[in-house]
Amino acid sequence: MNGFQVRHVAKDDVSILYLSGFLDAHTVPQFENALEEVIKKKRYKIVVNFKDLDYISSAGLGVFMGFIEEVRANGGDIKLSNLSKRVYKVFDLLGFPALFEIYDDEQEACSKF
């Protein structure tokens, strides 16, 4: 299995998380920890950039659900950007576009806060 990596970049008050590789049940804790750390710093404006993510499993989607409530309660949001067709299909199938804002472009996502 390919590895999974998450990189955090702070842009003003928006935290951007770059995901790459495979996000499945095995790598989910890594992503969870990264999100948790950002939220611990009280940074609630989060954009997740999927540009280099090859695959996401249903467990990977669960991570967003685990944090969205807290983030929104604190006036922030988790916005998604740069989803590949394959990744978008998974989000779409589950109906995520109804729950999350999804943008083609990171810049656009950042500007929507």
């Binding site: 659900m65 199938l93 589950l94 109906g95 995520f96 109804a98 729950l99």
Partner: peptide, 30 residues
């Protein structure tokens, strides 16, 4: 369909396959 995979329908008379994905989100998300 609550977020589940589509249904695939093979139509014998028309000899074609159709895929149905009506809108719906998974149970427990909302």
């Amino acid at each position: 369909r609550a977020g589940h995979c589509p249904v695939i329908h093979f139509k014998e008379d028309e000899k074609k396959v159709e895929m149905y994905q009506p809108s719906g989100i998974a149970v427990g998300l909302d």
